[in-house]
Amino acid sequence: MTAAIEVRAVEKRFGNVGIIRDLNLSVAKGERHAIIGPNGAGKSTTFNLISGHIAPTSGEVKLNGDLISGLRPFEINRRGLSRSFQVTNVFARMTVWENVRCAVLWATGHRYAFWKNVDSLPEVRERTAQILDDIHLTHRRDVPAGLLTYAEQRELEIGITIASGATVVMLDEPTAGMSHAETDRAVSLIRRLTEGKTLVIVEHDMSVVFGLADRISVLVYGHIIASGTPEEIRRDPKVKEAYLGEEAH
């Protein structure tokens, strides 16, 4: 079976500085895969490389067996990969409803249509309502996204990411900055909404990582030093030394 995401020998240099070196990563379909690593290890850069935000200097990225490295972000998104951002990245002046609806439009085939009334597209309306219900923001539907609380914006961020119905979902630190209760809420939300999908998640909170992930990859200085089940990662001496050593109490 082809992997959902296959990263092979990817390198990214900014000038002479190699941020990512010889990155190899394989995420099977339907897997929940977490990428962990110390600050500055290149986790977000890895996300950007896979999602097309930046192009790799060399190496290749495949999505469901098709080469996607070098494609533009929207081309990759149209092939069924959707990502969220570490820093909240919503449409601030538009309402919650409109934020989600915009994310639904391409996937429902309406594209750049300027001959259809957006309010009278039943499948768009139903899907948007469903997503809002899923992320528990129905009661805030008419509020401009910029006026939401931080936790609500993070939930909206997830809602926008999953709205297109992408089969591969990448979440960049979805619980960053959240309180304990908010994190628990977010985790159960993520678990529910990515049911049957491939999930790649970057996360600092180890309880989230070990509670959610089927497999974990550890990224240190732009290189994956270990990849395996949570149990394998917990036991791996290299990981202990490089990363968990400081964190595991």
Binding site: N89, A103, L105, F114, V118, I160
Partner: peptide
């Protein structure tokens, strides 16, 4: 302004980067 294009225009105004990750150029 009430068409899919019109709504995406607003999205591009607010956040052209994010628009790329919901399928739009």
């Amino acid at each position: 302004t009430r068409t899919p294009l019109g709504r995406i225009c607003n999205a591009v105004r607010d956040n052209p980067e994010r628009v790329q990750f919901i399928g739009y150029d």
